[in-house]
Amino acid sequence: TEEYTYTDKEKADRAAKEWANRGYTVTVTQDGPTYRVRVG
């Protein structure tokens, strides 16, 4: 499991979509002003 942190919702959504397109399980959680994209 890897985790990426973004401050921009659009970038987080785009990253999540790209990982999902590659067949990974993706979870996006909002943590205050940041968005965490957990992959795998």
Rank of each mutant, 00 (worst) to 15 (best):
E2G: 13
W19G: 01
N21T: 09
D13R: 07
A12Y: 02
D31E: 12
V39M: 03
G32D: 02
A12L: 03
D13E: 14
Y24W: 06
T25W: 11
G23I: 00
G23H: 03
T34E: 09
A16F: 05
T34W: 14
Y6F: 14
D31Q: 08
V39A: 03
A16W: 04
A12T: 03
R14T: 11
A15M: 08
V39N: 01
Y35A: 01
G23T: 01
A16Q: 05
R22A: 10
V39W: 04
A15D: 07
A12D: 00
E10F: 09
R36E: 04
A16L: 04
E2N: 14
K9F: 12
W19I: 03
T25G: 05
R36A: 06
A12H: 00
E18L: 10
A20W: 07
V28Y: 04
D8M: 05
D8E: 08
Y35L: 03
K17S: 10
Y24V: 04
K17E: 13
D13F: 15
V26C: 03
A20V: 11
A16R: 04
A15N: 04
T5I: 14
R22I: 06
V37Q: 00
Y4M: 05
Y24I: 04
E2D: 11
T7R: 09
Y24A: 04
Q30H: 09
K17F: 11
T5L: 14
T34K: 08
V26N: 00
R22M: 13
E3T: 11
A20D: 04
T29W: 14
V39F: 04
G40Q: 15
Y24D: 01
Y6C: 03
Q30R: 10
A20K: 11
E10R: 08
V26P: 02
G40V: 15
R38T: 15
T29V: 13
G23D: 02
E18N: 07
A15W: 06
K9L: 07
T34A: 08
A20G: 07
V37T: 01
V28N: 02
A16H: 03
T27I: 10
N21H: 09
T5Y: 13
Q30S: 08
A20E: 13
R36K: 14
G32I: 02
V28M: 07
Y6M: 02
E3P: 04
K11F: 09
E10T: 09
Y4G: 03
K9E: 05
T7M: 11
K11W: 07
A12V: 03
E3H: 06
V37S: 00
D8L: 05
Y24P: 00
A15Q: 06
K17V: 10
R22D: 05
V26S: 03
T27E: 10
Y4L: 06
Y24F: 12
T7Y: 14
